[in-house]
């Protein structure tokens, strides 16, 4: 996937113009180069090999999201199971929540999702994390570390270097 980090760059540009609302549905599919990328942004071969983005999404999810949302996107004692949430949320809703956070704090519950829009460790890999969680949510990918994965493509390495240097 060429989109590694592109959303973050776009977010920065958009945020600078203070027109976050312009992130319209459909933009993602165009970015990813295929019409159905938003619906199925991952590739898993019959032998279990995943594309780099899905595998990288697994890694970055574990580093940045697992501490609340639990292993495998399966939830914890205090964070919702994202493999379930993504059955309901669109890519745009997912993106919006990651960027701006979410709050549900009252007498019965203390759920608080932080705004991660300025966190490069998340935003540079947001599409990868989405691909991984979508694969989990669709039941296309089991729990744990994906058995095999594509090598890191040079484009991903370049996009990573550019985005992380921001």
């Amino acid at each position: 996937m060429l989109s590694n980090g592109s959303r973050y760059l776009q977010f920065i540009a958009v945020a600078t113009m203070a027109t976050l609302i312009s992130l319209t549905p459909g933009a993602h599919a165009q970015d990813s180069g295929t019409a159905d990328a938003a619906e199925k942004p991952y590739r898993i071969d019959p032998d279990g090999t995943t594309d780099w983005a899905t595998f990288n999404g697994f890694r970055r999810y574990n580093g940045n999201c697992l501490a609340c949302h639990g292993p495998d996107g399966a939830g914890s004692s205090f964070g919702p199971a994202l493999m379930e949430s993504l059955k309901r949320l669109s890519y745009e809703q997912f993106f919006e929540t990651v960027v701006n956070g979410k709050s549900d704090v009252n007498t019965a519950t203390t759920l608080k999702m932080p705004a991660l829009g300025t966190d490069r460790n998340v935003m540079c890999y947001i599409d990868d994390i989405y691909a991984y969680l979508k694969a989990r949510s669709d039941g296309a990918l089991g729990g744990g570390r994906p058995a095999k994965h594509d090598a890191k493509p040079p484009e991903a390495a370049e996009a990573e270097a550019a985005c992380m240097a921001n």
Binding site: L66, G70, P71, G75, S76, S77, F78, G142, G143
Partner: peptide, 12 residues
């Protein structure tokens, strides 16, 4: 509790 839903090894 982080591993509670999945079990630490529940889904390998």
């Amino acid at each position: 509790g982080i591993g509670m839903a999945a079990g630490l090894t529940g889904a390998q």
